[in-house]
Each structure stands twice: as C-alpha cells, then as structure tokens.
Nucleic acid binder design. Sequence first.
DNA 1: CACAATTGAGTTGCACACAACTTAATGGCG
DNA 2: CGCCATTAAGTTGTGTGCAACTCAATTGTG
Lengths: 162, 162
Amino acid sequence: MAETTLSEVPEEDFLRLDQQICFALHAASRAFNGVYRGALKELGLTYPQYLVMLVLWEHGELPVKRIGEHLRLDSGTLSPLLKRLESAGYVERRRSTEDERSVTARPTAAGAALRERARAVPRGIAAATGLPLDRVRALREELHALTRALDDAHPPPLPPPA
Amino acid sequence: MAETTLSEVPEEDFLRLDQQICFALHAASRAFNGVYRGALKELGLTYPQYLVMLVLWEHGELPVKRIGEHLRLDSGTLSPLLKRLESAGYVERRRSTEDERSVTARPTAAGAALRERARAVPRGIAAATGLPLDRVRALREELHALTRALDDAHPPPLPPPA
DNA sequence: CACAATTGAGTTGCACACAACTTAATGGCG
DNA sequence: CGCCATTAAGTTGTGTGCAACTCAATTGTG
C-alpha cells in the first residue's frame, strides 16, 4: 500500500483518480461558498466581497493592486467588485495623489460597522465544517502549500505577495 | 497547543483565521483551475467541461440529472455547458424515449477519441502539485468529508448521489 | 380517470474569474 | 529633455455557478 510515486499507478486508473481529486477540491470550494452565501446574505455581501472586506478591515486603506496580491485576484475581477462594494456604501475609492495610476479602497463608516455584524460569521462556518480547529489549521497549511506548488508550475499573472 | 474547540479561540483572531481558511480553499481551487486551463487548452476543453467528459468517459450515456449528481452541478450550469460540448462535437444529446423529460448525453466518436489525448493530462497535474500520491489521496478524502459536512449544514438543491 | 404535486431541462439574471486589450501615468535611459 | 518600456486600473468577452423561474412530462392520490 506504499505506492507513493506516480509511476506506480496503473495508467487505466489515472483518469479516474484525476477526476476524484480535481473534483474534490472544486466541490469543496463550492460547498464552502454555499455555506458562506447563506451566512453572508443578511450582510448583503457575496463571498468574494467578504474576502475583500476582511482584507480591508485588517489593513485599512489599500491600493487595488495590494488587495489583489492578498487575494490572488486581478483588476479584471476587483474593479467591478469594488464598484459594487462602493455602491453598496461599504467602501470608498480614491485615486492616489502620489501615483495617479493607483486607486485605493478603504471601508466607509458603514463598512467598518459591518465588521461588528460579521463577527458572528466565522464561528458558524467553523461549526458547519464539523472539523476541530487543529484540522482546519492543518488543512489551511496544506492548501497553501498546494496553491504555491500549482502557481509555481503555472505562474499566474500575479506574483505572490512579498 | 491542544486548543481544539471553538470556544478556546480568542474572538479577535476569528475573522483573521476565517480569512485564512476560506481564502486558502478558494485560492487552491482557482490555482488548480489555472493549471488545468493550461493543460486542457490544446484539447479545447475548459476545466468543468473536462469534468463532464471524465464522467461520460467512465459511465457512457447518462441523463443530465445523473451528471449533475456526480459533479454536484445543476441544470442551470450543465445545460449551456453541454450545449457547448455538443457544438464542439464531443457529445451528443438525445431526449429519452421512456421519459420525455429526461435528456441524455454521451461522447461522440470525437469525444471518445479525445480520451486518448486526455491521458497525458492527469500525470502533468499530479506532478504540478508536488505532492506524493498518498497525500493527494488523503487530501481528497478530507475534502470529500468537508464537502459532505458543509452540504449537511447547508443542504444544496442537489441531494448527494446514492 | 381527473388533477394537483413533483420532476427534469432549460432560461434568465447576476456575480465572479480570467485572458486580452485599452488608457493613463510613471520610470528609466540615452 | 525625449521616448519607450513598464505599471495600475479599467473594459470587454467568454465561461461557469447558482437562485429563481418556466414549461412539459410524469407520478401519486382520491
């Protein structure tokens, strides 16, 4: 049972195994998304919008570029998303004075207030996973390593944040 | 260091931990998607289209409903996706004669031939993960359990396949 | 047998992701 | 200084994912 290397797996099983692992990650991500969707509905946030707010709550004002580095997202995704967060009244955007190319985003008063209401979210999610926190942490580390390896094999447009 | 229960984590760290774990899964899924995108480009398939073809290669002709159960996807996603696979010449769709509500899909000759070209894909992906197959299998199991737990806490429209 | 509830596909609308492109500003570099 | 490569946002187009809906076929029930 110690078949650890790729060459020891019979060719016939490979497509099936591939289906299992790539599907598993895909499905888990969407299942997570679904649980967050329910938890975030009353806050008026989508899951990616919540990720952006988490970054802004932690760091305050940030250029779009920096947000993208934290979340591994590019301007093609962030620009319309931030526009929606702005029209929802949760963030303000402002073109930087030092560098006119850069646009920074920061939580408004309503956005900051939203943080208090959001405090209830993570506990509910953690409970829904049914996993002890140690396992959650371990899983997080494993997924980080996996993401790093995959991005390394297929470098994304965004270099990982320094 | 044996803080396993939720109640032992300070409230202040919760939003940050939440960001880390939910982001980790989200990012890993997208990183995987990116690697597949590169590997599948020459086959003319997207990642979800590849998942559908894997199911059809394994099971032959299947109703849309069954495909959805295997992949945890509903008709809102599968209908247009199958239409694209059909216009690409990889699958045929046919309304069932026994139950006129049901539509089945199966690989065409070109779709079946594609399977041979697809054999090269999984090895490349497995190599890109940088993980030994044992770890991949363990991760798969963990993600399956996680998906089940999350779907249980927030039942999706699709019941898990029997 | 009639008829309401259910089921399977499909459609519509919205919000990501991401490639490819455009535009404007900045930073070298001769 | 002048000019070009680089950089940051934003835009466009395509393909999911999913909620909410429509429509037709089927099933269950009195």
